[in-house]
């Protein structure tokens, strides 16, 4: 271990402490500056500029295969290196580009809950809880509190495989929140839930994201999801495949401003 690496780690720990303390006071934020993706020299999405404030939920929409999910992977640092990326990612004003995922602290939820099957519900939550909280009692207290919040009191020793879809989705969110993320990334997390569950889980996730003041980026192809946020929707533009890029002005991703239920129809058309 080199000296500088240890130094960097301490710095990260300090930041983490500041971040969790200051979350309620200074609003956190997530910013993408000119983020674009290409694969094997073929551009995938046009450069994207985006600012998400704490407590705000911005929806990225686009047809499947448009690279929406890759943008999230790019934000949290797990993007496959076969992609070429440009642009920068800022969390709380700090440039996170090139940082390993565990130091970015951007929580992510996928379509599947991905609860670790070898751990109990409580152990899954404990996995998310930062090491900083050392005492056994406090860790247990935090976990119980999270379970209460998820309406799953007394479920700590249960096997995640025995939970219902909605329960698992709630545990997955609590696990992410316990890790004290500075931003929340939602990769179509509701698409595998039953229709009647989807509504409830969605509200649960959104309410928590707002209450924690997290800048949240939602990727979906379901206009209902977008409408449920009642906030900004960004249409992901596939990059133009053009042999003479100079001939046209560079295309930019554009924002559709705040939508409500009446506009869902229009978005539906767009996403086709």
């Amino acid at each position: 271990m080199s000296q500088s690496r240890d130094g960097a780690r301490d710095e990260a720990r300090d930041r983490a402490r500041d971040g969790s303390k200051g979350r309620s006071e200074a609003r956190s934020s997530l910013a993408l500056r000119g983020v674009s993706l290409a694969i094997a020299g073929r551009p995938l999405i046009a450069p994207l500029d985006l600012d998400v404030n704490g407590g705000e939920i911005v929806t990225l929409m686009g047809p499947s295969g448009s690279g929406k999910s890759s943008i999230l992977a790019c934000v949290c640092g797990t993007l496959d290196p076969i992609f070429d990326t440009t642009g920068k990612i800022f969390i709380n004003g700090q440039d996170m580009t090139g940082f390993p995922p565990e130091r970015r602290r951007a929580g992510i939820l996928f379509q599947d809950d991905l609860l670790f099957p070898h751990l109990s519900v409580g152990e899954n939550l404990a996995f998310g809880l930062p090491r900083r909280i050392k005492s056994r009692q406090e860790r247990d207290a935090r976990i119980n509190q999270a379970l209460v919040e998820a309406d799953l009191e007394g479920f700590a020793r249960r096997d995640p495989a025995t939970l219902s879809g909605g329960q698992r989705a709630r545990v997955a969110l609590m696990r992410t929140l316990l890790s004290e993320p500075r931003a929340l990334l939602l990769d179509e997390p509701f698409s595998k839930l039953d229709v009647h569950l989807r509504e409830r889980v969605r509200r649960f996730v959104f309410d928590h994201a707002r209450a924690e003041g997290l800048p949240t980026l939602l990727v979906t192809h379901d206009p209902e999801d977008a409408a449920a946020t009642g906030e900004r929707v960004v249409e992901v533009q596939p990059a133009m495949v053009d042999n003479s890029p100079a001939s046209r002005p560079p295309q930019k991703n554009h924002e559709i401003s705040t939508v409500d239920h009446r506009e869902v129809g229009i978005i539906k058309k767009l996403s086709l």
Binding site: T78, P101, E102, R105, I108, S179, P181
Partner: peptide, 22 residues
């Protein structure tokens, strides 16, 4: 499923910890 690893990394676990614990 690589997403287990990604989830764990995004929860703040180092690659080593992800390997041993997940």
């Amino acid at each position: 499923d690589e997403r287990y690893v990604r989830s764990a990394l995004c929860l703040g676990a180092s690659p080593g910890r992800v390997f041993w614990r997940v």
